[in-house]
């Protein structure tokens, strides 16, 4: 009961005593009635507060069920989706590297062949070659041209495979966007829950990250005590005597 009401009670009670002592019973009755009305009023106020509390609790419960669905369904779902991102990017990287590993020796072979023939061709053009060797060269050029053609065909096919392997960006981009939305939803729900339960976020509740590995630096989110690339790593190491 608040102070105003108790003071009001006190002054009315004193008046009642004064009126009864003076023999004004009618006046005293009136004051008693007023007192009773006051008590009802504060009862209604308390009831109002209770109702409001109940209403807020119900709303809080709705929020809780949102959190329940977020943590019960959406987060595990996001976990699976992110695992899928790892799988898809892994597959694309291996696909690309397989093609490169396959084509690199081919390019080397074609390059060596072409250098070799080029050297002899220069001699042939300067008429610095025996007839027998020229005939052999002509036959080799014939074979070389056909190998060159099938080789560049393989390179072209490989390059389109590499091109196609980049489609992972589209899929992973979509998945990651959805997960970002989910994290935003979760954040909103949690902030509301914290506000509703009256907790205050202060410095001491923020988790310490000392000793944890940061992983790759993300543009815009660089850690303040991280270096910004190989040059700075080298500088730091050389300052340590490396």
């Amino acid at each position: 009961m608040d102070e105003n009401i108790s003071e009001d009670y006190l002054s009315k009670a004193r008046s009642i005593i004064t009126q009864v002592e003076s023999g004004n019973m009618d006046e005293a009755d009136k004051l008693v009635e007023e007192l009773a009305r006051n008590r009802d009023q504060s009862l209604f106020q308390e009831l109002g507060k209770l109702t409001r509390g109940f209403h807020e609790a119900l709303n809080g419960f709705k929020l809780d069920s949102k959190l329940t669905s977020l943590t019960g369904t959406d987060i595990p779902d996001a976990r699976e989706r992110l695992k899928h991102v790892i799988d898809v990017t892994d597959k694309a990287a291996h696909k690309t590297m397989s093609v490169v590993e396959d084509l690199m020796p081919l390019c080397e072979t074609l390059g060596t062949q072409s250098d070799d023939i080029h050297e002899r061709w220069k001699r042939f053009m300067k008429h610095d070659m025996e007839a027998k060797e020229s005939r052999a060269l002509c036959e080799e050029v014939q074979v070389y041209l056909s190998e060159q053609s099938s080789g560049t065909g393989r390179v072209r096919t490989g390059l389109s495979e590499i091109l196609l392997a980049q489609d992972y960006q589209d899929i992973t981009g979509q998945i990651i966007s959805r997960v970002i939305n989910l994290v935003t939803d979760l954040e909103t729900s949690l902030v509301k829950l914290i506000k509703d339960s009256g907790a205050i976020l202060d410095e001491s509740t923020q988790a310490s990250t000392v000793g944890e590995l940061d992983g790759p630096q993300v543009p815009g989110l660089e850690s303040s005590d991280a270096v910004s690339g190989q040059d700075e790593v080298d500088d730091l190491l050389s300052s340590l005597g490396f």
Binding site: L213, D214, P216, Q217, D225, A226, V227, V233, L236, L240
Partner: peptide
């Protein structure tokens, strides 16, 4: 490594 905090580079050294 992707780790590039000063304290980690110093630790490695």
């Amino acid at each position: 490594t992707a780790e590039q905090k000063r304290e980690q580079i110093v630790e490695a050294a």
